[in-house]
């Protein structure tokens, strides 16, 4: 009779993993190091928690008394987001086409890809600062910033989408003797248009979020209202603005889901 020897098979199926243990030690070591390096202490944190209590007390109930100011800031944010998305999407449509390596020769696609990468490396706030310094305070700086941010995102993804298309349809349209423009319109665009709409809707959403933020550095919109409320310690008004921002973003997310379903 064959029997299982319990001594022989008594091996832990979950072996001790030296690699993951090393990673965890590294992480713990890093946390200790960084707390020392940055001078973070528990006392400082605990003291702050007391202030948090006070801040919460002053934030609630939110104060909607100055709703006219709130509404005008919100309108400006929406305008910035819409104009920037519109212009940004149209520019990205062309830049994306020119950056696709399977449609364009290298001497066109490489510089365009560089331009797109440059738009993406800097955080929108830094771009906003530069635009505020060069075109002055106000909505224009916000619009230009978000156009740059949109190009960095949509043009890159759009170019990648074009590079993944099937070439059979292009050949079919070329075989009919179609011009280059017709090839783009009738064989490339139908394959990538729904993805392009998807990226654009996402970017509209994220421009809406960012348009409420660029105001902090002076580029117009609700962010400016928020920042000045912070500086005047009007925390109940701050709470009102934050609630408005969160609800407008949730509405935006809901609407963009509907648009995405239509273009599926």
């Amino acid at each position: 009779m064959v029997s299982i020897d319990p001594q022989k098979n008594h091996e832990n199926p979950f072996k001790f993993n030296w690699f993951s243990a090393a990673i965890w030690t590294l992480i713990v070591g890093y946390v200790v190091y960084s707390f020392n390096a940055m001078g973070l202490t528990w006392e400082r944190f605990a003291e702050g928690l007391g202030h948090a209590d006070k801040l919460m007390g002053r934030m609630f109930p939110p104060n909607f008394e100055r709703w006219e100011l709130l509404l005008s800031g919100l309108a400006e944010s929406l305008e910035i987001a819409i104009i920037a998305s519109f212009v940004g999407i149209i520019l990205s449509l062309f830049l994306g086409l020119f950056a696709a390596r399977n449609l364009m020769p290298n001497w066109i696609s490489i510089p365009i890809r560089g331009l797109i990468a440059l738009c993406r490396t800097f955080h929108p706030v830094i771009i906003a600062i530069l635009f505020v310094k060069s075109v002055g305070f106000g909505a224009l700086a916000g619009i230009l910033t978000l156009i740059v941010a949109s190009i960095g995102f949509i043009a890159k993804l759009f170019a990648e989408a074009i590079e993944e298309i099937s070439l059979k349809q292009i050949e079919a349209i070329r075989a009919t003797g179609a011009s280059f423009i017709s090839v783009i319109i009738f064989s490339v665009m139908p394959q990538v248009f729904s993805r392009f709409i998807g990226f654009s809707v996402y970017q509209l959403d994220s421009n809406l979020r960012n348009s409420t933020m660029v105001g902090i550095v002076g580029a117009g919109g609700l962010g400016g209202t928020l920042f000045s409320a912070f500086q005047r310690f009007d925390y109940d008004f701050v709470a009102a603005i934050l609630i408005t921002i969160i609800s407008i973003i949730m509405i935006g997310e809901y609407l963009s889901n509907i648009v995405r379903r239509i273009f599926k």
Binding site: R44, H51, V125, R209, M213, L242, I246, I249
Partner: peptide, 15 residues
Amino acid sequence: SVNSLVWALLFVSIF
């Protein structure tokens, strides 16, 4: 939904 700069503003006023 709350941008990192706004979070930072909140925490700067706390800590």
